[in-house]
Amino acid sequence: MKVLMKPIKMIAWFEENGKLMPIRYQLENSESEKISVNVDKVLLMQEEKLAGNKMFIYKCQSVLNGLERIYELKYELYTCKWFLYKM
């Protein structure tokens, strides 16, 4: 997987216990077309506090161009930003 750290538009929901789950996001492909991606599965969720800055990392699975791909999303708590972290 390559580090991309690309800011993305995201639809996410909060579960009753406060857990934040990514649902669907928008990506721009190489032809600058906007494509929507459904998060089919969250395989792993991790918290990190590097340099005292809290971020959540989600290892996810989606179908992209007909292929099943595994990649990572990142959510930064204090800026409320979502990133496509690694793919």
Binding site: V3, L4, M5, E48, L50, A51, N53, M55, F83, Y85
Partner: peptide, 14 residues
């Protein structure tokens, strides 16, 4: 180091 770690956390390759 603090700036370095912050940059790495935000995807820096260096």
């Amino acid at each position: 180091s603090w700036t370095a770690v912050h940059m790495l956390q935000h995807g820096s390759s260096i």
